Simulated assay, not measured.
Amino acid sequence: MVRRRVPLVTLMLVAAGLVAGGLWWWAVLRLLLVPGETGPVEGAVAAGGWGLSLLPVHVAASSGKRGATWGGVTRASRRRRWDAGSDPS
């Protein structure tokens, strides 16, 4: 069996993500279970986490050749040829 070491930075990022997720769940559950005792901090944490979940997937940075572009045009898109095609009239 091959053992691979995980870099410390990766472990720290995972730990930070788990802590942030835990804080978000704490704020959401507190807003749902005891809404009279919550303050603006819980509301801001819950709204901020919900707002981050609305970011589209294509906002994330790509790595490797999957995100390679040709002159600002991605491989998935094609330049439209306006002189080709049928005439609508």
Results as ranks from 00 to 15, higher is better:
M1L: 11
V2P: 09
V2K: 06
V2C: 01
R3S: 14
R5G: 05
V6I: 14
P7C: 00
P7Q: 00
L8W: 02
T10A: 07
L11S: 10
L11T: 02
L11Y: 02
L11N: 09
M12P: 00
L13C: 01
L13K: 04
L13F: 00
V14Q: 05
V14A: 12
A15P: 03
A15E: 06
A16C: 01
A16V: 00
L18R: 07
L18P: 01
A20W: 04
G22K: 04
G22R: 07
G22E: 09
L23A: 13
L23V: 13
L23F: 11
L23S: 05
L23W: 05
W24R: 06
W25P: 00
W26P: 00
W26R: 14
A27T: 06
V28N: 02
L29H: 14
R30Y: 04
L31V: 13
L31F: 00
L32K: 02
L32P: 01
L33G: 10
L33D: 09
V34Q: 11
V34N: 08
V34T: 11
P35S: 06
P35H: 05
G36I: 02
E37R: 14
T38L: 04
P40I: 15
V41M: 08
E42Y: 07
E42Q: 13
E42D: 15
A44R: 01
V45D: 07
A46N: 11
A47P: 03
A47Q: 02
G48E: 12
G49E: 10
G49L: 05
W50V: 15
G51Y: 06
G51M: 09
S53Y: 04
S53D: 02
L54Y: 08
P56M: 02
H58K: 04
H58T: 15
V59A: 12
A60F: 08
A61V: 09
S62F: 13
S62N: 14
S62P: 10
S63T: 13
S63K: 07
G64A: 07
G64Y: 14
K65P: 12
G67I: 08
A68V: 10
W70N: 09
G71E: 10
G72A: 15
V73P: 01
V73E: 10
V73M: 08
T74A: 06
T74G: 15
R75G: 15
R75P: 03
R78T: 12
R80Q: 05
R80K: 07
R80L: 14
R80E: 12
R81P: 00
R81L: 01
W82F: 14
W82M: 10
S86Q: 12
D87I: 03
P88Y: 04
P88R: 04
S89I: 09
